[in-house]
Design a protein around this nucleic acid. Structure first.
Lengths: 208, 208
DNA sequence: GTCTATATTGTGATAGAC
DNA sequence: GTCTATCACAATATAGAC
């Protein structure tokens, strides 16, 4: 499909993304990837020596995107609340399209924890720097001294989990696609408010 | 292993849990399950006709446990904060042991969304009832009128995601097993506080 | 109920012509 | 670079003896 667009190597990688994202490493078939790319199966081996190599390329692309976005947003010069909104917006719009991606990455992190370190180095991302930035910003804007790690995990939880749990939400609560979209839309305002209120309450309890 | 304890059928199911939980449906091998149970491979087929049937039994067990716990906690007669603490405690202690379980269930929900409805019926769980209970309790204890669905998802997010993201936390932030344990321990107090503060702030913004 | 043997199909990977 | 043909093995599943 789209045999003319871009190089063969690129088309194979795109096809591999599609298949690996939805089926995982064990569920994916080299034949299916070849079909999806519209090329012969041997060509997949020609460009990417074996299944492992191809999978690693796909995983690095996916994990790299998410890492880069997190890094970019936190290090930008927006306000604290704007950053949460930006991150939410990214997750809700981008990942609603690529809805298999977060679960794919999570699975990959369990299977290939070694790759995490090398990705951080390759993308020049420093977790410590992110935490410092978060701590300083909360101190300056909200005048609160917090442990940034819990806050970061809380933000990630509130942004990522509802996307991960999409099938749960749809089935248990009987949501249609439209209702789910509206729910995600509502979260664009409720989540920043939720986090900000939690922080302000923290201030009142600990500041005296 | 433990060839004497319990029936053969039970030992096969236990072995299947162990293998499916960590490797998923596609990654699991019937041979490995047989080895783990200490029985001949044919016996696995004798008791559970095929791989699908065996997987469904394992998935229903896992998903059923999580659903039952959520239902039990929310419908209990504890205070709102106690319920959050109970749920956190369950996730942190139980799932730190069975650390593959939440991701296993999440994957299963993507692959077999049909099973969700039948599990709810079988366990006699009503999502609507849970929501009503949550709404009423927050109104009575905190005097706040909220949309319970967002709150429920927020609670689930803050409890479940940090367990799911275990490898991410350990690798990115270089946590040891001990440090991770301490982090989870801290969340037993920080998360209920976080949620309560968020709700109180909501009250101040919307109650006038 | 439990075992051995085997049928059957699927799958990653390579050799070699063009 | 791209194709055909094929190897080598792995995996689910079943038949049938005991």
């Amino acid at each position: 499909m789209d045999k003319n667009k871009s190089t063969t190597e690129e088309r194979i990688l795109e096809a591999a993304k599609k298949v690996f994202h939805s089926k995982g490493f064990d569920g994916a078939r080299m034949q299916e990837i070849a079909n999806e790319a519209g090329v012969n199966k041997s060509l997949v081996h020609y460009y990417y020596r074996n299944k492992d190599t191809l999978f690693n390329a796909v995983f690095e692309d996916a994990f790299g995107r998410l890492l880069a976005k997190l890094n970019e947003v936190i290090l930008s010069d927006n306000t604290f609340v704007s950053k949460i909104e930006l991150f939410l917006n990214f997750y809700i719009t981008f990942l609603s399209q690529n809805s298999y991606l977060p679960l794919f990455v999570l699975n990959g992190l369990y299977e290939k924890p070694e790759q995490i370190k090398s990705m951080l180095a390759k993308k020049k991302i420093s977790p410590e720097k992110l935490m410092d930035q978060l701590r300083n910003q909360v101190r300056e804007e909200l005048h609160i001294d917090i442990e940034p790690f819990h806050l970061l995990i809380n933000i990630l939880s509130l942004c990522v989990f509802p996307v991960l749990a999409k099938p749960l939400i749809m089935t248990i609560f009987g949501y249609s696609n439209d209702q789910l979209g509206q729910f995600y839309q509502e979260r664009q305002t409720t989540v920043p408010e939720f986090i900000l209120n939690a922080l302000k309450g923290y201030e009142q309890n600990h500041s005296k």
